[in-house]
């Protein structure tokens, strides 16, 4: 790891003017620094900022940027009113990491694409213009939706998938960003993963607490039972009225460079019962534009099965 300045900020203003990479839990940043993927000259410790806490007020759940994954997952209001958040967090990483890692750091964690994480390889995300070995390489873990010829890395956060289904808002020290507008698709500039500007500090997350949100679930499929990133995942919130789907939100992980919302799949489900046939139609709508690569074509089928499984639980 390269030498760097370490600054401990005690106010938001201080943090923003310190001009360095923020460190919260450190569980992603330090790995990236050890591997030489990131090499900041200055690291700004934001843990002393008053950005923790979880509160429920006027139909909105506010999660401080520095609330820890474990704390959010265990919070009674989160577990009962927004269960998909708790489930997605408990399915993430390990107990130790969940004690350390912050909500803001979780949303900003970098992809686990092995070409990105290994500086011996070219990677447009890490070194724009250098290449993307994943296109024709070991791309089992990579995107089938939303990728580009410059990048097919998937976003790794489970929480981000849950928050996408719940239409959360990311709050920074100077603006509010709907999560649907927060993450960017790679297109020609995979190095830009989200709309945050340099030095912009996330202060918290807001999630509307609705009856739909209270009927939400997370399903994560992975290569081992626990402590592993998603191969594919689904966050679903479904409200039935008289046996018909009155409202539904679906977000998918492991399939795209950002948490993937599918309005087409949602439209295929709305206004009718959750029959196998309608669920199949929703799955087909989801993968209509899928562009699998050599080793990840199985995800096209797997994500449809994951959708069928999670929706089956709402019947």
């Amino acid at each position: 790891m390269k030498l760097f300045d370490y600054v401990r900020a005690t106010s938001t203003g201080d943090a923003v003017s310190a001009g360095g990479d923020y460190i919260a839990g450190g569980t992603d940043l330090l790995n990236l620094m050890k591997d030489g993927v990131e090499a900041p000259d200055r690291v700004v410790d934001i843990n002393a900022l008053p950005l923790g806490g979880i509160s429920l007020d006027a139909g909105v759940l506010r999660i401080g940027a520095l609330a820890r994954m474990a704390e959010v997952a265990a919070h009674p209001a989160v577990r009962h009113r927004l269960p998909v958040i708790s489930q997605a967090l408990l399915d993430s990483a390990s107990p130790q990491i969940r004690n350390m890692a912050s909500i803001s750091g979780n949303l900003l964690q970098r992809t686990r694409c092995w070409y990105f994480r290994d500086t011996a390889f070219a990677c447009h995300k890490r070194r724009p213009g250098s290449g993307c070995p994943a296109q024709d390489g070991q791309n089992r873990w990579h995107a089938i939706l939303g990728g580009s010829d410059r990048c097919i890395a998937v976003h790794a956060s489970d929480l981000a998938v849950a928050l996408t289904a719940l239409e959360a808002t990311v709050v920074t020290h100077r603006r509010r960003i709907p999560i649907s507008e927060f993450y960017l698709l790679p297109e020609g500039t995979p190095e830009r993963e989200n709309v945050l500007e340099s030095g912009e500090l996330i202060t918290g997350i807001e999630v509307p607490v609705t009856t739909l949100a209270s009927r939400s679930r997370y399903l994560k499929l992975r290569d081992r039972a626990t402590f592993e990133f998603a191969v594919v995942s689904v966050a679903a919130a479904v409200r039935l009225r008289g046996g018909e789907v009155d409202d539904v939100r679906l977000a998918f992980g492991g399939v795209a460079p950002r948490p993937w919302r599918s309005p087409e799949a949602e439209a295929a489900l709305k206004g009718g019962p959750l029959t196998d046939e309608r669920i199949r139609a929703a799955g087909q709508a989801l993968v209509r534009d899928a562009r699998p690569r050599e080793h990840n074509a199985f995800k096209v089928e797997l994500v449809q099965r994951a959708l069928a499984q999670i929706l089956g639980g709402f019947r």
């Binding site: 300045d5 370490y6 401990r8 005690t10």
Partner: peptide, 22 residues
């Protein structure tokens, strides 16, 4: 405002306290 800086690069003035250049 007040910050603590652990400094392992060039010296930064006006920040307290500082661990400086190795």
């Amino acid at each position: 405002t007040r910050r603590d800086v652990l400094k392992a690069g060039a010296t930064a003035a006006a920040i307290t306290p500082v661990l400086t250049q190795p």
